[in-house]
Nucleic acid binder design. Sequence first.
RNA 1: CGGGGCGUAGCUUAGUUUGGUAGAGCGCCUGGUUUGGGACCAGGAGGUCGGAGGUUCAAAUCCUCUCGCCCCGACCA
Length: 504
Amino acid sequence: MSNQSAISPRRTEDFPEWYQQVVRAAELAEPSDVRGCMVIRPWGFGIWENMQHQLDAMFRATGHRNAYFPLFIPLSYFAKEAEHVEGFAKECAIVTHTRLEVDADGKMKPASPLNEPLVVRPTSETIIGATYAKWVQSYRDLPILLNQWCNVVRWEMRPRLFLRTTEFLWQEGHTVHETEAEAREETQRMLGVYETFARDHCALPVFSGEKSESEKFPGAVQTTTIEAMVQDRKAIQAGTSHFLGQNFAKASGIQFQSREGKQEFGWTTSWGMTTRMVGTVVMTHGDDDGVILPPRIAPTHIVINPITTKEETRARVLEACERLALQLREKRYVDLAIEVEIDKRDLGGGVKNWEWIKKGVPIRVELGPRDLEKNSVAVGRRDQPVKEKQFMPVQEFVANAPEMLMSIQQNLYDRALKFRDENTRKIDNKEDFYEFFTPKNRERPEIHGGFALAHWNGSREIEERIKNDLKVTIRVVPFGDAEPGRCIFTGEPSRRRVVWAKAY
RNA sequence: CGGGGCGUAGCUUAGUUUGGUAGAGCGCCUGGUUUGGGACCAGGAGGUCGGAGGUUCAAAUCCUCUCGCCCCGACCA
């Protein structure tokens, strides 16, 4: 029993299946009756809400405000930007009718066709652009710096909870600027926000940089991205920021009179982060016993489990738990109140303990009759083995709780960074590259590969070939100092190494 | 959208080849014994076997159609 892990299969046995089991066992989300759509349960939604609040504060701090635009986009608006519509065409959901009527067979059927079909937003560049076009008359109206939190729909063929669902939640920032330089700066600034958020809040080390031409957002001039590595060593895009040039401004007619009195098109950006981040956190930090949450985004930081097995001490134990909770709640952790829950449910102590382990609560506290006498508590950290409990005086625990949370946060980041670095290789020839990305066991591929830092001649043909051969793509062309070399596939000159990986 | 597989209780499933009227484990409910580590005993509830049609005295089982899910490919935050 003691060797058994809470989640079956283990990560090394079958990572995708492990992921599904974790999401279910931790009660983060479950598949719904609607194909491709998920029900986000309170624990999962709590994580998302924390992400939302914390990112939102960062948006505000960089001068952005929230607004809301329609879910439905007239087809003609959507079709204005050619690359854009082409990029999203295959995953559009389209509303074509209103009203239901009962037909001859007694079934309900759509009755009244719309004059113009409405696309359920897969992203809002076009509808927001149309609005901005009305708002922008003069350079004095710029910049416009807005964000919206909303749902979007992309009709996916193969959904996975949080990672790829037909409907998902996200935030999309949309800005207009007077000059190209300002818009490029904004694109960078928001990528920086994502990078900070991923690192400091979600404990995710990321590579940030630019997408290659073929991986770019449809309609963008430049797409920038933060890429994380999860425990099956695949890459996952955790946030993205686009410099849209004047493409959407021209498509939507966002024009203004410049300082020189000339009519000019605005320069726009857009940037987004999604509920996929929840899945990324699970896949990065989780272990064979379930989720491990970075304290900063955990809905509950500390769970107190009262040991009320003896009737005569029950009331005093519960009272001590309440006192402890009150003391903890007065403490601050970073800029957050410490969230404490007392699990008073009438279940076996072990059952409750394991539930919270699976959910990934950072700190579990047990308080029973024996602790009452010694004025101590038993403390378990989720980033440490389940068996390792520390016994300490109550006051010491209360005083140290914020530090302990910070230490867990740091530990998760350090582990993730170490894992990523251990699985990131500089690769300098084609043979090594192919070997790196080829599993030893072809029947049941083991976890293999990682990030390959390799030189590339910049051509789309090479990308295509590698994608066909290995399912490996260029995840990001990192910013930073150039390191000239030679393309490992063609021998042609290359300005810098790029990050190759299999991806979600 | 192409190729393969699978639908039996909330979950995992046995039974399908060779038709005979549905069984288990987990979970759930009740009572009791337990309780510092995912408890035990006893009792109980829960299934029109994905759906529709057909063959048959008889269908979870055979046939046809249909819907849904999973895996592999193409696409994606």
